[in-house]
Design a protein around this nucleic acid. Structure first.
Lengths: 153, 153
DNA sequence: GACAATTAGATTGCGCACAATTGAAATTGC
DNA sequence: GCAATTTCAATTGTGCGCAATCTAATTGTC
């Protein structure tokens, strides 16, 4: 006989899925960031790349990818757009010709100052105390790392 | 004078960003889901649409969009692909010709049975107790809702 | 009834994400 | 020393995700 909504369906209910919570929260962050990053001329993934480079400069594409969990199929065109925007320079490593090193330009360095107020705006939008956010972040990172551990079988 | 890594940079450190935790966790979920959903012939966003439809059928595109926080620019092509896969049928509402109602086909209904073990696989991959996951989910949903509240100014 | 404003969905264009493939360069294995 | 393997980046193709624009249908106001 046909099944109406039964207890057996509980695991398949959208609102019970932590993955959807994470998925929809990621989009919500993206939408909050959009107007802030528009002023910097960056998309959100580009902003993440710039965060990596502001910490350490002149690194191969691979390092950026490992940090952000992204591959060259995503990063290569993204970095070319950052280069077209005069924020980074791409040069082949002379030590290892396979590597492309990504260095910030003067403009790329300078953009860090304009980005300095972004985290505060996000904090305000999240309407949450810093300790609470840090605790949540640590939990989510731990979950992410457990998920990533499964992917490598 | 030039600034090296200083305390002022702390908010701009990648690992301090909850948004990156959420962003990277979403991608990690996607990668864990991929092999499971491949067997169903679905992508992750398509799976979310099916979750909505398995709860209630024959709903306008708008309702699906509100549930998933997605607009017609995303859903129209996605739903056309689900229709091409014979999982849904798209029909104009006779009451309101602007609306397109999405109904499951027999195949679409049947797929629910094949999807029934997916949540358990995800639970196993997350390597976390159900109460912990529920608590995290609720926190993330609350954060998402606060972020979404800001977007509408 | 006429007409402005609103609403639903479709379309276009751009930028991720990622699988799969390619090609060049470096490393290894013997 | 050199073939086999591995590594790195680039490329191709598919599918989101969203802003902006468009068309058609409905609603509100008079």
């Amino acid at each position: 006989m046909p099944r109406k909504s039964s207890a057996a369906d509980t695991p398949l209910r959208l609102d019970n899925q932590i993955c959807f919570a994470v998925y929809s929260a990621a989009h919500a962050f993206n939408r909050v960031y959009k107007p802030l990053l528009d002023r910097l001329g960056l998309t959100y993934p580009q902003y993440l790349v710039m965060l990596v480079l502001w910490e350490r400069d002149n690194v191969p594409v691979k390092d950026i990818g490992e940090r952000l969990f992204l591959d060259s199929g995503t990063l290569t065109p993204l970095l070319k757009r950052l280069e077209a925007a005069h924020l980074v320079k791409r040069t082949r490593s002379s030590e290892d010709e396979r590597q492309v090193l990504i260095a910030l330009t003067a403009q790329g360095h300078a953009l860090k100052e304009k980005a300095r107020n972004v985290p505060h705006s996000i904090l305000a939008a999240s309407d949450c105390s810093v300790p609470e956010l840090v605790a949540m972040k640590d939990e989510i990172v731990a979950l992410r790392d457990r998920l990533n551990a499964v992917i490598g079988e």
